[in-house]
Design a protein around this nucleic acid. Structure first.
Lengths: 216, 216
DNA sequence: TTGCAGCTCGGGCAAATTTCCCAAGCCGGA
DNA sequence: TCCGGCTTGGGAAATTTGCCCGAGCTGCAA
């Protein structure tokens, strides 16, 4: 398996942009101790590549079309709990970060990070540590002072209302469909936002979509 | 001026992600005839770097925070009509492509393109030709045949605000990024809803996602 | 049995936002 | 030149949000 660990760190690159992958590959391999052993351009291929190459670290961009990157994390971790997955994306929303860690990611760095920080994070997760970039740490820290946790903290009713809301239903339509007062739906709406840490309706929709609650 | 043209093509890289820039630099410079003479991480710095280095080609990612990338194109072209700007982004919405060419871009390639296609496009625009990747050509072709998407009725400013909104930004954040008053952003928000027929914010996010304006 | 905890459902009320309508500056085309 | 469209924002009423509250249920544990 990861016999290369003695001589360096093997990395699986998952990103849907070919030139971006090639760029990362060159940046990483110029480090000396990092070796890109495989690439994948979608979540579905990611697990196959993981199984075939058993890399020390998976560098994963979760903003991919098609299947959710979160699903890819869960997929890989479910079959290989030892897998080290470093999420690498331009998104920096607290709900996404928490969802990624909840799905089993070992680290989360944004593309705004300096290359040295990214490389450092790869080495950290390869050592089994948890890693995140400074901006992510700040976002999580601020978030933890105000909000609770992610989507699985929601009750059944809240999930149902979130699903309909994210599907495009108005408050009135949800209330009519569930035989609730508009006020109750509004209260659930507010409750869902505070529970998930979403600051806007758009973030709520994105969260619902990334968690597979709704399809877009 | 561009005396390096005899020995190669000088390129200015504009992208807000440091590691992405570094990756592109390595990919381009491995070609032999391409030289990255400068980098910028925002639209404001892009023109300064352009003036200082007079590159043959500007490789520009228009999905940057702060001022619109389209503005950067117009900025550079207004002062240096000979500038060759190759837009390089993960977005592939027809309205964006048309807006970019309308603003004075010489080419448009997506990050889904093969590196060889990107390099080919750089050489093409350096020769003064117009260039676009295959997927963009298909999208433009289909668009010219169809009645047009819901986003076609939106102005460039509206598109930019919709993108940021659907990406999860708050009204205040959008206003700060674009140097607008909160009131103006609110007005755009309302205008976008009425123009597209969206009744809720969630529908707006879904619309933006289905049109490729934002990715979830 | 009592009691606690958590979900569900809604009222209340101040603060914020949305919804429209309007106006002014700018720019490009007829 | 005039018209139309884009951009930017003010104003004011209507609506929603943010956050507090209580009350009825259920399940579970002491």
């Amino acid at each position: 398996m990861s016999e290369v660990a003695a001589t360096g760190i093997s990395v699986l690159l998952v990103d849907d942009h070919p030139i971006v992958r090639q760029g990362y590959r060159r940046v990483l391999e110029s480090q000396g101790d990092l070796h890109v052993v495989a690439e994948a351009d979608n979540a579905a291929d990611a697990y196959g590549a993981f199984k075939a190459h058993d890399p020390d670290v998976v560098l994963l961009d979760i903003s991919m079309p098609g299947a959710s990157g979160l699903e890819a994390i869960r997929n890989i971790r479910a079959r290989s709990p030892r897998a080290r997955i470093l999420v690498f994306t331009m998104h920096n929303e607290a709900v996404l970060v928490k969802a990624a860690f909840g799905a089993g990611a070992s680290g989360f760095v944004t593309k705004s990070s300096e290359p040295s920080a990214v490389v450092g994070a790869i080495r950290a997760v390869a050592r089994g540590e948890r890693a995140m970039s400074d901006d992510i740490a700040h976002i999580l820290a601020e978030d933890s002072l105000s909000a609770g946790s992610a989507l699985d903290q929601l009750g059944e009713r809240e999930i149902e209302i979130l699903r309909q809301f994210a599907g495009g239903a108005t408050t009135e339509q949800i209330a009519a469909h569930l035989n609730l007062s508009v006020k109750t739906v509004q209260n659930y709406h507010y409750l869902i936002k505070t529970k998930t840490g979403a600051r806007t309706d758009a973030q709520l929709v994105r969260l619902a979509a990334t968690c597979g609650l709704t399809r877009i």
